[in-house]
Structures are given as C-alpha cells and as structure tokens.
C-alpha cells in the first residue's frame, strides 16, 4: 500500500529527473565515449597522447594552483567576514550589504573590472604602486602573476557566497557555549580554536565542496582576464573546441580528465567531512 502510494508521487519527480539526466549524464557519457574516437570513427588513444603534447600537465598544475590559492583566500577571509557579520554592532547591515554586492555582479563584468585594474598600462593597481614609489609591474608577463590576478578576481566574486554559508553556520552556534567557556576562563583565541572551528567544520566542508568544484571549473574569469595565456584546463578545452572539428576530439579527452578529477575530489570531500552533514 505504502509502496504504490509512493510510486504515484515519484511520477511528479520524473520530469525533472529525466531533464537533468538527459542534459548532463547523457552528454558527459557522450564526451567520454568520443574521447576514444578519431574524427573518422575508429577507436584510438591518440587524443590523450596529443593532449600531453599540447601542455595538459601545465594546464592541470596551473588550475590546481588557482583552485588552492582561491580556496584558501576565500575560506580565510569569509570566516573573518562571517565573524563580523554575526556580531551585533551599529552599521552591521551596511557592512553585510556591501560585502554581498560582488556576488550579484555578473562574472564577465567582474572579470572586466579586474582586467582594468591589473592592465600593464593604464591599470589602477600600477598607478597605486607608482604612487607609493615602486616600479610598475607587468601583470600578464609571467604565468604566476597572471594566475594571481585570476585568484584575486575570483576571491572578490565568490567570497560573499562562502561568507554567507559560514554565517549561517556561525549563527547556529549557541551563545551559552561561549558564555560557559568564558566563565571557565577561556580567552578569545582559545574559544575560537576550541569552539568555533570544530563546530563549524561540517559547514566548512560543504563550502569547500561547493567552491572547490566550481574553482576547478573556473572558466569565464581566466578567459576574459588572461585569455589562453597560460591556459587553464577549461580554457584549454574551449580552445580545442573552437579550433577545428578535429581538435574537438582533444577537448573531449581533456573533458574526460576534468570530469574524473571533479568526481574524485567530490568523493574525497564527501567521504572525509561532508557525508554526515549531507545525510542529516
């Protein structure tokens, strides 16, 4: 009785399930399958070996550097912001609204802003550096400085989201815990490391999961700010896709690699930290 009852309601979910599967699982499977094909249609591994020739390793390492850099910067600053947001002080609302704004700004617009700040000639970062009496920096000259610009732009755009997630976690902690710790003589640092951090860990895992995955998929920001120089894994895929109907098979191969990295990352985070929270 209960079973058949459930089946009737599952019918309401089916359209959404079919839609999502048709537009994500099916294309992803297609991508994996085609990564082993030549344009003529025979099976091959040559797409993968060609990728090594076109600098897949460097693109992967650069993507990893950007992801880790952005994640650390975001988590650290978002924690700071969230801790200010939960404090009741005059001007709290203004501060919260101001810090949320970048999240509402289109990715392409924010990429454009940062390309104006960090352009070698006529950039605002350089005019600030020159005002201070230092020599201007050519931001796009080396791959490490280009990647730093992407990290900074990404942190500006996405820290608000992480801050909101951490804020919801912080406001769930009961004040009595802190009062008890205070009464027992725990200082501010002790309270932070023994109460705030451990209690925030599950929600930090969620933030890490959500942001880590999107960090690895970062596409619009590097494309607008630094183009293909140096390429990240996503811009490399896009370049192959655009070049010709032959190189699109390289982009299938690179896509497959990206897909497996993301799946690996997601399962590690879910397994290590997020599983408990997700099951709740």
């Amino acid at each position: 009785m209960q079973k058949s009852h459930n089946l009737k309601y599952i019918a309401f979910i089916i359209p959404a399930l079919v839609y999502v599967s048709a537009l994500s699982i099916f294309p992803a499977a297609l991508s994996v399958y085609r990564s082993f094909l030549t344009p003529g249609g025979s099976y091959t591994f040559s797409n993968y070996s060609a990728l090594l020739h076109y600098g897949l390793e460097k693109a992967l390492i650069d993507t990893l550097l950007v992801s880790i850099g952005a994640l650390i910067l975001q988590l650290f600053l978002a924690l700071f912001i969230a801790m200010i947001m939960v404090k009741p002080f005059k001007g709290n609302r203004i501060f919260s609204s101001l810090v949320i704004i970048p999240y509402g700004i289109s990715t392409v617009v924010s990429a454009f802003i940062f390309s104006m700040i960090f352009s070698a000639v006529g950039g605002y970062a350089n005019s600030f550096i020159v005002d201070l009496g230092f020599r201007p920096i050519d931001w796009v000259a080396t791959s490490s400085s280009s990647l730093s610009v992407v990290v900074i732009a990404d942190y500006w755009k996405n820290t608000p989201l992480v801050a909101l997630i951490l804020f919801s976690g912080l406001s769930g902690l009961s004040p009595s815990m802190y009062e008890a710790a205070k009464a027992d003589g725990a200082g501010a640092f002790r309270r932070f490391f023994s109460i705030t951090l451990p209690n925030l860990a599950p929600i930090m895992a969620i933030a890490l999961l959500i942001r880590g995955v999107s960090e690895f998929n970062i596409f619009a920001l590097p494309l607008v700010i630094i183009g293909y120089n140096p390429p990240l894994i996503t811009t490399l895929i896009y370049e192959f896709y655009q070049t010709s109907s032959t190189t699109i098979y390289y982009s299938y191969a690179a896509s497959t690699i990206l897909l497996f990295i993301i799946m690996g990352y997601a399962s590690i985070v879910l397994w290590k930290g997020g599983a408990k929270t997700y099951e709740r």
Partner: peptide, 28 residues
C-alpha cells in the same frame, strides 16, 4: 510526499548532477 529519507536521496542525486563541470557538459 514520499517521505524525508527517500526525498533526501533524490536531493543528493540532483546536487551531485549539479557538480558536473559546465564546460564538459556544454560541448557535447
């Protein structure tokens, strides 16, 4: 209507699908 435990399984499925990299899906 289908009960919280089962519903949460579906929700997890939806969010896992959501993690599929945009560019990987977009090209095919």
């Amino acid at each position: 209507r289908i009960g919280v435990r089962m519903a949460n399984k579906f929700i997890i499925f939806f969010f896992l699908i959501n993690m599929m990299p945009g560019i990987v899906v977009a090209i095919p």
